[in-house]
Design a protein around this nucleic acid. Structure first.
Ligand SMILES: [Zn+2]
Ligand SMILES: [Zn+2]
Ligand SMILES: [Zn+2]
Ligand SMILES: [Zn+2]
Lengths: 162, 162
DNA sequence: TAGAAACCCTTGAGTAGCTACAGAGTCAAG
DNA sequence: CTTGACTCTGTAGCTACTCAAGGGTTTCTA
């Protein structure tokens, strides 16, 4: 099959497939006479695996590690479990951070009950106060926004919609 | 004061200050004879405001809107409240998504109690299954990882540590 | 007054994970 | 033979920064 069908089968953007190939996540496929990429069932499996991992918010690096284990089935899978535990930790930590954020934001929101002129808005006032040195622990989790640049991931992955 | 002191006072990286200037968030400062940027108290205030907003995970766009209101104090602040409500929504939505993720990940984790060879690992098996079409709503929130590229934000902002 | 350290400047590239476009080539149907 | 759908490569863009190269400036000390 050609790239378009692979894209349809897995619910992946065509450009994303080429990106994974460049990035070494997908093996380099055979080419047709006209230089088109030709894929088979193995590619569908592999790409589905990647997309499933991405839908669980794993990084491409994390996915690379998991792929390694799929390719060496005789190895002990302890590291797979470890990777998953770590990743669950990433998610949990980000949730904690967001919970704290939510509290701070709701506090701030309460400072302006009914609207008035911006000069006396309690929110703007609150934001102007000095930064409270919070003893946040180092983490590697990301922010709160998802921008137009990546609508596919934002919408969530809906595979298999043929 | 020069850029280094502004950086110290606000707990901001020097490069970040120059970046804000390029991006139009900080007004272009005066220059000394030797072409050094010269800042005053107003810049400290303005930068503190930005960093406080960033510590609440607002985007630079959101901050730009808030700055607009600080500069036009006669306007009604209803839009400030609206922006904050929207942003609280951003945080809440991401938390929901992460909660769902956590559940799925813990489900997956249970599939491999004791470690065995990768060929029979329940986790790898689970990840190989077809993607479940989940009816996720469109959102703009980001992922779960924070990488070395941005250690400052990751650590949280600790301003005023002179 | 020379020299060194500490600061500052601009420019350009890199980060994750894509997306989007330009400009070209390929292929099947009508 | 043309139209249109598809594909190709290469490049640039998105967020919010961070870092490094290769210079210039200031300040302090010997
Ligand atoms: Zn992770
Ligand atoms: Zn208000
Ligand atoms: Zn927001
Ligand atoms: Zn296992």
């Amino acid at each position: 099959m050609k790239i378009g069908e692979l894209a349809r089968l897995t619910g992946t953007n065509v450009e994303t497939i080429r990106y994974y190939e460049r990035d070494g996540l997908l093996p380099i496929p055979a080419r047709s006479d006209g230089n088109y990429r030709i894929y088979g069932d193995a590619h569908v499996q592999r790409l589905s695996f990647i997309r499933r991992c991405r839908s669980l918010d794993m990084t491409l690096e994390e996915i690379r590690v998991l792929q390694h284990f799929k390719e060496s089935p005789q190895e002990n899978c302890a590291d797979v479990n470890r990777l998953l535990d770590l990743h669950i930790g990433h998610v949990a930590q980000r949730m904690q951070e967001l919970q704290e954020l939510e509290m701070q934001l709701k506090d701030l929101r309460e400072r302006c009950g009914e609207t008035r002129d911006a000069a006396h808005c309690g929110i703007l006032e609150g934001l102007s106060q000095a930064i409270v040195p919070s003893g946040k622990t180092a983490s590697h989790v990301q922010g709160t926004h998802w921008h137009a640049a990546n609508p596919n991931s934002a919408k969530g992955i809906q595979g298999n919609q043929v």
